[in-house]
Design a binder for these strands. Sequence first.
DNA 1: TCCATATTTGTAATAATTACAATTTTATAA
DNA 2: TTATAAAATTGTAATTATTACAAATATGGA
Lengths: 139, 139
Amino acid sequence: MDTIQNITLKLTEHNIKPSLQRIKIYEYISKNLIHPAVDTIYEELIKEIPTLSKTTVYNTLKLFEKQNLIRSVNIDETEIRYDARKDTHGHFICTECGKIFDFNYNYNKIKINGLKEFEITQQNFNIKGICPECKNNKK
Amino acid sequence: MDTIQNITLKLTEHNIKPSLQRIKIYEYISKNLIHPAVDTIYEELIKEIPTLSKTTVYNTLKLFEKQNLIRSVNIDETEIRYDARKDTHGHFICTECGKIFDFNYNYNKIKINGLKEFEITQQNFNIKGICPECKNNKK
DNA sequence: TCCATATTTGTAATAATTACAATTTTATAA
DNA sequence: TTATAAAATTGTAATTATTACAAATATGGA
Ligand SMILES: [Mn+2]
Ligand SMILES: [Mn+2]
Ligand SMILES: [Zn+2]
Ligand SMILES: [Zn+2]
């Protein structure tokens, strides 16, 4: 459960001081696993926190990522999307509606050739295409 | 060999009329497999074609991609990079120097779960980290 | 309460990309 | 060849995500 207490604890564990803004931002992305962009988060939270600044959303997400609390998904060409899920999984983006979907794959079976001596910090498996809903709408 | 004749033929095969600008742009990315961005290509070709417009570079690369002659690599957060290699391979970007390296992986062994009914048009396997050269420089 | 520090905010700057209209080039037919 | 229409290129302005930065506000301890 992502109660306020749990979120506060989680932020603290990642060395992030739990301010109201930070709690609300983490609450939003952990409860809405839609890989939201900065603007989506901002437009939603401004309803609750009328003084919220977009800069705070930018800074907070950058901080969360640095502290390894969330990850960024670089699949949408125009804007960075964010993900509270931390387990290894891939992302599918629909080029019609822009929705991002999670998928699983056998990453432990992947053999990489040509990166000896390279230090790996992050892996991303991205797929583009058309989601079932948009496929139907086109007919 | 990528002679001018071969490039002209290749463009024609992809239903692209071979203008001087288009030939030079394709020649550059096929001979410089460094996954250049628009600006890199522009700065290099302006030396040969002083009237070249950056808009032409943008338009031409978009056209090449649409006609399936090249592919775009969405791994650098700030700009789109382009690749003349068309065979399946992955990309490693060094977060220190920004260089992009190719690598191979056993893509035929990958089992994807959770994308039934999804229409796939493009796959991208991206890895971030530090390249050997930058790792040495840091010591 | 007072003060130092951290966080948030608002605005301006930056930079990649796109829109769009004008100009130039190319192809075609009289 | 010359006239004309279509295609390609160019230059500039607009758009938009992100960052820089300084001022304002909030927080926590002496
Ligand atoms: Mn995800
Ligand atoms: Mn490549
Ligand atoms: Zn869709
Ligand atoms: Zn490097």
